[in-house]
């Protein structure tokens, strides 16, 4: 049988469409941030290598949007588990691998929608970069966002309640500040930021545009390019951490009496 069950995938997309309030805010919030911090200010037209600052802000805000989308879906998986849906699925021939594949494909679809809509908005309102940079950064945003489905899943499994939704949303805002996404950091703040989960993801997505350079908002000085391997190591390290925690939390929930 197919790894991704097409009927299940189609019905999952229908569920996403029904939950249009979540869908709307997942896209509207980062789009709004971009319009305020990227498209409107005068510095948006300042050049950054092949593009402009508006593009730089656009990539950051889209990273935030894509991550909230996948983390939200990961959290929904945890909620489904707690409500016994995984037991119902466990009574069918559908394997864990097939279930995870459907969910991963749905998350990727959702992230792709968020990226496409916000990128289209950015394109229409002044973000500039060569086509290659648009495509590359979009692809990195999409692939990397899947890692953070695990982040939502972990929070959902750990909290075991609807409070997980606030915990995931709130913590992603904080991690976005710490991850050099909302405000360009410098000095000791940047040193700390390099070790936080969203830093590597956003830095890699910006790299086609910036070549790895960043700047410090408080001083306005341009900071020298960092090594691509540091960003990859951040992303890979956090992937291992999140995956390990997921395996542990799922095992814990299975060994407990329901």
């Amino acid at each position: 049988m197919n790894l991704v069950n097409p009927t299940y995938y189609r019905l999952e997309l229908r569920r996403l469409r029904r939950d249009y309030v979540t869908l709307f805010f997942t896209i509207a919030l980062p789009a709004f941030f971009f319009l305020i911090f990227g498209a409107s200010p005068e510095y948006g037209d300042e050049p950054v290598r092949n593009g402009n600052v508006a593009m730089w802000v656009l990539i950051n805000m889209t990273a935030y949007g894509a991550v909230t989308a996948t983390a939200g879906l990961g959290g929904a998986v945890a909620l489904e588990r707690m409500q016994g849906w995984s037991r119902q699925i466990g009574l069918t021939p559908l394997t864990d691998r097939q279930y995870v594949s459907v969910k991963a494909t749905v998350s990727a679809t959702m992230a792709a929608i968020v990226i496409l809509v916000i990128y289209a908005l950015g394109f229409a309102t002044g973000a500039e970069a060569p086509l290659r940079e648009w495509l590359l950064s979009g692809a990195i945003l999409l692939a990397g966002s899947l890692v953070f489905a695990l982040y939502g899943l972990n929070i959902g499994l750990a909290f075991r309640s609807e409070a997980a939704v606030s915990a995931a949303g709130g913590s992603l805002v904080i991690l976005s500040f710490l991850g050099n996404i909302f405000i360009p950091l410098g000095g000791w703040q940047l040193t700390v930021a390099r070790f936080t989960p969203l830093y590597g993801y956003a830095a890699l997505a910006r790299r086609p545009l910036t070549g790895g350079a960043s700047f410090d908002q408080s001083t306005g000085e341009v900071l020298a390019a960092s090594s691509i391997w540091a960003d990859v190591a951040n992303m890979a390290g956090w992937f291992v951490v999140l995956a390990t925690v997921s395996v542990w939390l799922v095992a814990r929930s299975r060994s407990r009496q329901a």
Binding site: R18, Q83, G84, R87, L91, L94
Partner: peptide
């Protein structure tokens, strides 16, 4: 197959969608 005690359904799917989903998992 089995009928379980409680829970186990997705509230936002319709009855026929739920049956369709579970049916799609069988060969």
């Amino acid at each position: 197959s089995a009928l379980l005690q409680s829970g186990g359904l997705l509230r936002d799917l319709t009855v026929s969608e739920t049956v369709e989903l579970i049916a799609s998992t069988y060969h």
